[in-house]
Simulated assay, not measured.
Amino acid sequence: MKTILKNVLLTVVAVASVGSVMAQEQATASGEVRRIDTTKGKIAIKHGAISDFKLPAMTLVYEISPALLSTVKAGDKVKFTATHENNRYRIDEIKVDN
């Protein structure tokens, strides 16, 4: 009985791990920085549709590392790479697009 229960638990953990990997998506897009909140590590970007995320054109607030925020300011046109995972959007790379 213990062996069966152990195998079932291992299977559940394996399936859960695969599910979380599959839930992560990454996309590259461009847009305009609208607002920055350095204390909360947030940036609002107005962008066109992002098909990889199935998002229409909108202004969306992303999580972002404070180190990345030092390279941009409100009003900048930017190109960025973002990750969507667990219903959260995070900027992984961002650069001003002249």
Results as ranks from 00 to 15, higher is better:
59 T>F: 06
29 A>E: 06
57 A>Q: 05
50 I>V: 12
67 A>W: 01
39 T>R: 09
17 S>W: 10
70 S>K: 02
60 L>S: 03
58 M>D: 05
97 D>G: 02
86 N>P: 08
89 Y>D: 03
66 P>Q: 03
21 V>M: 12
82 A>D: 04
30 S>C: 04
60 L>T: 09
81 T>E: 12
39 T>G: 09
29 A>M: 00
86 N>T: 10
83 T>L: 08
52 D>P: 07
46 K>V: 10
83 T>A: 11
78 V>N: 04
56 P>S: 05
81 T>I: 14
95 K>R: 15
40 K>A: 11
58 M>C: 09
49 A>I: 08
81 T>N: 08
61 V>W: 01
65 S>Q: 12
11 T>W: 13
44 A>N: 03
31 G>N: 05
34 R>L: 13
28 T>I: 11
40 K>G: 09
16 A>D: 13
82 A>W: 07
54 K>F: 10
77 K>A: 13
11 T>I: 12
14 A>G: 06
1 M>W: 14
89 Y>C: 03
51 S>W: 11
16 A>K: 04
27 A>E: 11
7 N>D: 12
2 K>L: 13
56 P>N: 06
26 Q>M: 08
15 V>G: 04
4 I>G: 01
30 S>Y: 04
84 H>A: 08
3 T>V: 15
60 L>Y: 13
61 V>L: 00
69 L>T: 09
14 A>L: 13
20 S>L: 13
28 T>C: 06
40 K>L: 14
58 M>G: 05
36 I>G: 00
72 V>C: 01
24 Q>G: 13
87 N>D: 15
88 R>W: 15
43 I>L: 09
61 V>T: 01
11 T>P: 14
21 V>G: 08
24 Q>T: 15
95 K>G: 10
75 G>V: 08
19 G>W: 13
85 E>I: 14
38 T>M: 00
39 T>Q: 10
12 V>G: 04
96 V>I: 11
17 S>D: 04
51 S>R: 04
57 A>T: 08
45 I>E: 06
21 V>Y: 11
65 S>Y: 02
68 L>A: 03
71 T>E: 08
26 Q>N: 11
48 G>Y: 02
97 D>I: 03
18 V>G: 09
14 A>M: 08
8 V>Y: 13
56 P>R: 05
97 D>A: 09
82 A>C: 00
23 A>D: 14
8 V>W: 15
72 V>I: 10
69 L>D: 01
93 E>R: 11
6 K>I: 14
75 G>N: 07
47 H>D: 01
90 R>M: 04
23 A>I: 05
62 Y>T: 00
40 K>Y: 02
91 I>H: 00
73 K>V: 01
25 E>H: 14
26 Q>A: 03
98 N>W: 12
51 S>I: 14
21 V>Q: 12
69 L>S: 06
83 T>V: 15
88 R>V: 15
9 L>Q: 11
65 S>D: 14
47 H>E: 08
63 E>W: 15
94 I>D: 02
36 I>T: 00
52 D>W: 10
20 S>I: 11
53 F>I: 00
79 K>A: 15
78 V>A: 09
65 S>N: 09
27 A>S: 05
32 E>S: 01
16 A>P: 01
29 A>K: 10
61 V>R: 04
40 K>T: 09
80 F>L: 01
